[in-house]
Design a protein around this nucleic acid. Structure first.
Length: 842
RNA sequence: GCGGGCGUGAUGGAAUGGUAGACAUAUCGGACUUAAAAUCCGAAGGGCGUAUGCCCGUGUGGGUUCGAGUCCCACCGCCCGUACCA
């Protein structure tokens, strides 16, 4: 064989790794451990290039750490519950379980040829009863510790299909199947008390040194700690006072109305008495539940006729309005509106002709408020024209503190700290999820199932021919005995949010077959995850829920305290994108075409296609590249190499056929170079080659350590160029190429094994210790220093690496370009940064 | 709406506040070949110029600095999230 044949060598070396069993994770007390985890996939049907990129990155880390002497855990599993399986059952018939397990089989078969260093013996799917049974056991433990409770919460209600919709199933305020206008309706739901941990989840972010700042910032803002004032408005003519919470109590003198949520008890009270209120609330409850939909919806208000007294002036009466943009979940579900300093309130007041009174104005440019509210940063000093505490010039921050202090001293309000973070609603009115293991008994109430009766398994005999939850209409599954009194009782038919499944899978991987949720010895050895890799789209929910879950598990004795923050380091990788090819049908509607059907911008019949710039790969746009095709045409190493080259891992990467070609060509070239050197014996030493080798070791290692895989790849290109251009004999190139094999092994493991073997490497390169760079070979004797004149590069000089500053200065001033610019004069300033730059300021 | 991020040649991108464009793609020129493919060698940010060279240049506009792609402010565009997609 004298050509690079990926199909042959990839199978050969995968078999060799299997036989040596080198990827099985074992607790080895003699070694430090390293746990690499990529976010596990949803079994949608086929793997896509995004998966390839994600798992290749994890594999580089796993293989690299293995070479560095760590005992590595690199597992894989399936996030297998969720809506698409039910949708498939509705559309095509069949059972969600069949669909899911078939998909898993296909995707596993697609992943194996990638040659990932995964310990497949630990694989599980979250829909395995062995997994979700342990999840149910934990739910019961959480219930026991007061971490779970029930309360009412708002859901999307489809009034035609009579069913609850996911946010994703609401399009422009309408149900995706029925097309009916969606309403917000209350339902009793199960909740995790994540809000008990608000402060801790916020504070602990400071300790996550190896998390991206942007993720920590997003979580901080999401948790949303705020200090504000809680106080009550007394009602004119009696009745319960209305309690409000505000983060801007300093603007109280600019209040023009009190607003309450459509779900506020007062609004609900009025609803039963008044047809007008009822009609308004029907209107106000239209639309989906997302924050975005609520914020962007047209602001609607209804004057209840109720009047309240301003707390600082009993003669000042404010109207109480029901407003559709006020959330019952935040604060007290009631606010006071200050239109001058809040855009939303201003829009509302302009619409309903309510007064606008400014409480402060800009110091340098006072303007009356017209259509734009004056909302300077809280740190900016402003002039107070309307404040009861007699402020003159002060920042918002100071004014807020002053206001709270005065309210507390006068006894009409209390300074309180609140969080934006809401409790985690986990109830789903769907079949394909983990059943919530509780029983509703007429005498005992809502009680947990006995642990010995777990798992509460999903029934197989269900149908999806009508909307709604099949568990609700199952003839027998609901019937059970009360675990407390033994009387006839009914099972809970809600299942769990799939975020629950993914909130502890990382812990389960440490002991995937244990008879309890975890095994303490394994958890203590393997936890925490040393490097977690996944998409930025999970920056908030999945990661926050996992952080909560690890704490809850520690409280229940399922994880050591040291695992409360389960992910030591986090890396968020970008998407894989591709151009979209489209033509138009007779009605001008777009028709999409697969990349393999387009050559040079044309279809097979010669029709020119419109090329739309890169977008996330999606089936509907047909811009999906199937990894299996790439592996068949070029081999897994080419797919892996391409995924690592060019684009920085945290950024999106565009898949291009040209890029794949180039990757393949380079791998072929490396293989050829090795093949040419294979016949020789190690002989002779070449200083330049030796320097290039050690520079490559240093640079490639730095790249991997800092998640700069694209720069590692660039350095490997440069190293290959250096070897190719070197005039050294084949015998001197052999050791350099063996190092090349080692440095490439984490990225293109099959090719690396093959050339390692060719060049007389010992054993498997996957098990060879990572090479170390000799610092002595990394420093150059002379360095070229650029000379700038007034910050612009004009010349350069070569100096010895240890030349003292004074001598460099002399040389620089003697430089031709500098002499010319100075014209006999003296420079104003001379900056010399040794080894870096010289700047002559004239 | 709100929170977060990104923006550099024809293209993907590189660059601890210190020579902008490493490395690669496409392109062009050359070698090899009967020819092509493959492979190898070389050119190349834009403008002006025969050339030494000069000017411009990291989304737009300001600022800090001896020096800014990098730090600060404002704006534009795109992407992610927005609590029932996973």
């Amino acid at each position: 064989m004298s050509r690079y044949e990926p199909r042959e060598i990839e199978q050969k070396w995968q078999a060799a790794w299997d036989q040596a069993g080198i990827f099985a994770a074992t607790r080895d007390p003699a070694k430090p451990k390293y746990y690499v985890l990529e976010m596990f996939p949803y079994p949608s049907g086929r793997i896509h290039m995004g998966h390839v990129r994600n798992y290749t990155m994890g594999d580089v880390i796993a293989r690299y750490k293995g070479s560095c002497g760590f005992s590595v855990l690199h597992p894989m599993g399936w996030d297998a519950f969720g809506m698409p399986a039910e949708n498939a059952a509705m559309e095509r018939g069949g059972h969600p379980a069949t669909w899911t397990y078939d998909n898993i089989a296909v995707m596993r078969d697609q992943m194996k040829p990638l040659g990932l260093s995964i310990d497949w013996s630990r694989e599980f799917a979250t829909c395995d009863p062995e997994y979700y049974g342990q999840q149910q056991a934990m739910f019961i433990d959480f219930l026991d510790k007061g971490l779970v409770y029930r309360k009412n919460a708002v859901v999307n209600w489809d009034p035609v299909d009579m069913t609850v919709l996911a946010n994703e199933q609401v399009e422009d305020g309408r149900g995706w199947r029925s097309g009916a206008l969606v309403e917000r309706r209350e339902l009793t739901q199960w909740f995790f008390k994540i809000s008990d941990f608000s402060e801790e989840l916020l504070e602990a972010l400071d300790g996550l040194d190896n998390w991206p700042e942007k993720v920590k910032l997003m979580q901080r803002n999401w948790i949303g700690k705020s200090r504000g004032l809680e106080f009550s408005f007394d009602r004119v003519g009696g009745g319960d006072p209305i309690s409000v919470y505000t983060t801007r109590p300093d603007t109280l003198m600019g209040a023009s109305f009190v607003g309450i949520s459509p779900d506020h008890p007062i609004a609900k009270g009025l609803e039963t008495d008044s047809d007008a209120v009822k009609a308004f609330l029907v209107e106000a409850r239209k639309g989906g539940t997302t924050e975005e939909a609520i914020e962007k919806a047209e602001k609607l208000g209804y004057d209840t006729g109720i009047r309240v007294k301003h707390p600082l002036n009993p003669d000042w009466e404010l109207p109480v309005w029901i407003a559709n943009f006020i959330l019952m979940d935040y604060g007290t579900g009631a606010i006071f509106g200050c239109p001058a300093h809040d855009q939303r309130d201003l829009d509302f007041c302009r619409k309903y002709d309510l007064p606008v009174v400014a409480t402060f104005e800009s110091l340098d440019d006072p303007q009356p408020v017209t259509d734009t509210a004056f909302v300077p940063p809280k740190t900016e000093k402003v002039r107070w024209i309307n404040h009861f505490a007699g402020l003159d010039e002060a920042t918002g921050e100071v004014a807020i503190d002053t206001t709270i202090d005065k309210a507390e001293a006068e006894g009409w309000g209390t300074g309180v700290t609140k969080f934006r973070l809401r409790d985690w609603g986990l109830s789903r009115q769907r079949y394909w999820g983990c059943p919530i293991p509780v029983v509703h008994c007429q005498t005992c109430g809502v009680v947990p199932e006995k642990k010995e009766n777990l798992p509460v398994e999903l029934p197989r005999d269900v149908s999806f021919d009508q909307p709604g939850n099949p568990l609700d209409r199952h003839p027998t599954w609901r019937n059970c005995a009360c675990p407390v009194c033994g009387a006839d009782a009914l099972r809970e038919t809600d299942t769990m949010d799939t975020f629950v499944d993914s909130s502890w899978y990382y812990a389960r991987f440490t002991a995937p077959r244990a008879e309890t949720p975890t095994n303490m010895d394994d958890a203590k050895y393997w936890m925490n995850v040393d490097q977690y890799i996944g998409g930025i789209e999970h920056a908030i929910l999945h990661l926050l829920y996992s952080r909560f879950f690890a704490r809850a598990m520690a409280i229940c004795g399922h994880l050591p305290d040291s695992a409360k923050e389960p992910f030591d380091a986090l890396f968020t990788q970008g998407m894989v994108t591709h151009e979209i090819y489209q033509t138009r049908d007779g009605n001008g509607r777009p028709v999409y075409h697969l990349p393999e059907d387009v050559t040079d911008g044309k279809l097979a019949d010669g029709t020119a296609v419109e090329v739309i710039p890169s977008a996330k790969m999606s089936k509907s746009k047909k811009n999906v590249v199937d990894p299996l095709n790439i592996i068949e045409n070029y081999g897994a190493d080419t797919a892996r190499w391409f995924m690592l080259s060019d684009s920085p891992p945290e950024r999106d990467v565009e898949w291009t056929a040209a890029g794949a070609d180039a990757a393949f060509k380079h791998l072929s070239r490396v293989w050829r170079m090795a093949n040419e050197a294979a016949g020789a014996d190690d002989a002779g030493e070449d200083t330049d080659l030796l320097r290039a080798t050690h520079k490559a070791i240093h640079d490639v290692t730095m790249g991997i350590e800092s998640f700069g895989f694209n720069t590692s790849v660039a350095k490997l290109y440069a190293f290959a160029n250096a070897i190719q251009k070197s005039k050294a004999p084949a015998g001197a190139k052999r050791p350099a190429l063996r190092v090349m094999a080692q440095l490439m092994a984490p990225m293109t493991p099959h090719l690396a094994e093959d050339i390692w073997a060719m060049l007389g490497g010992e054993g498997l390169v996957a098990q060879a210790p990572w090479p170390k760079a000799d610092p002595a070979l990394l420093v150059e004797d002379t360095v070229t220093m650029p000379i700038q004149i007034n910050g612009k590069r004009k010349s350069e000089i070569a100096v010895a690496k240890d030349m003292p500053k004074e001598e460099i200065e002399k040389l620089a001033l003697a430089d031709h370009a500098v002499q010319k610019a100075l014209q006999g004069g003296a420079p104003k300033k001379l900056i010399v940064v040794p080894g870096r730059i010289i700047n002559v300021v004239i």
